[in-house]
């Protein structure tokens, strides 16, 4: 076994790239669930973001525009889920699954002309001073802008939920929509905003896959990343800082196991391959054994102002 061939600087850099798409999707979904809505359509919104972001970046030559278009497209798509579940009171689980199917089909249709094309990718930032620190500089401060944006987003969500009035209202709606309604808050409007935000984040995550991580468009390319994002929200027991830990842990174990294989580590491949899922399950078991789930009390329950 020759583990010296694993370069820790490159490893950490790869982990950050690998974790970013699921981090973006998961933080968005967490806000949606904090508002009491279970949107199982993350996979569908991600892949829509992936194709729209790719197509826009290819036609305009600007990856930044690609990300913006991806966020917008997925957010608009998620509004269809919002209208169906919040206004027309359809079942959230079924509608969310439907959203995934629609997203997969729609993206295949939009993406047909873009197969095999290359897109402009995000440049790596060259941060002065910080980037020049030996080791740490290359490890942590020489990524593309989206990596830092995703981290800032986590910070912003955490601070908003914890310290602001808006965050408090959002949590109130998720815990007890009837009480929030009685206090005069517009439950449906607040939930729609959360769904819109969640859609935009999933779109950014998808676009990160097609513009940076892979980078290309291939039909069905999210291959389950949206479901991982959903699991991470539960894993994180609906806390922003734990979403960050969950996404980096999952991304980290995935990349690490590939690196261990490449370096020829004498660990059975089966164990390495299942390790990301194994660790996720283990943490979930630990969390539920402790009994403190932290799930918003109104999660997935339909709301109508008459009740």
């Amino acid at each position: 076994m020759d583990l010296t061939s694993i370069n820790p600087i490159l490893l950490v850099a790869s982990i950050m790239i690998s974790a970013t798409p699921i981090l973006l999707a998961a933080i968005g979904e967490m806000v949606v669930e904090k508002a009491g809505v279970l949107n199982l359509g993350v996979e569908g919104m991600m892949i829509t973001g992936a194709v729209v972001g790719f197509a826009t970046a290819v036609s305009t030559g600007s990856p930044a525009l690609g990300f913006a278009a991806a966020a917008l497209a997925s957010a608009v798509l998620s509004l269809s889920f919002g209208v169906l579940t919040q206004i027309l009171m359809s079942n959230q689980v079924a509608t969310g699954l439907g959203l995934t199917l629609v997203g997969l089909g729609l993206s295949a249709l939009i993406g047909k002309p873009y197969e095999g094309m290359k897109s402009p990718t995000l440049p790596k930032l060259d941060i002065p001073v910080l980037g020049d620190i030996p080791l740490l500089g290359r490890m942590l401060f020489s990524h593309d802008a989206m990596v830092y944006l995703s981290l800032l987003l986590v910070l912003a969500v955490w601070a908003t939920l914890k310290y602001t009035r808006a965050g408090l209202i959002l949590r109130a709606v998720g815990e007890s929509h009837d009480a929030a309604h009685a206090l005069g808050y517009k439950v449906i409007r607040i939930r729609m905003t959360a769904i819109f935000f969640g859609g935009a984040c999933a779109g950014l995550g998808g676009a990160y896959l097609s513009l940076v991580r892979v980078p290309q468009w291939t039909e069905g390319m999210t291959a389950g990343a949206g479901w991982i994002a959903l699991a991470i929200v539960v894993f994180a027991s609906w806390r922003a800082e734990r979403v960050l830990i969950g996404a980096y842990l999952f991304g980290g174990v995935t990349v690490l196991q590939l690196n261990l294989q490449a370096a020829g580590a004498k660990v059975p491949v089966e164990i390495l391959s299942m390790s990301p899922y194994l660790i996720t399950i283990l943490v979930l078991v630990v969390i539920s054994a402790r009994g403190a789930h932290g799930a918003p009390a109104s999660l997935g329950r339909p709301f109508h102002a008459s009740s």
Partner: peptide, 22 residues
Amino acid sequence: IWAYTWFDPAKESDAARALIEN
């Protein structure tokens, strides 16, 4: 590297990167 998948672009891409980095 055994990827245990026929089709997963993100994982295939990660695997290629891991090999190149090694």
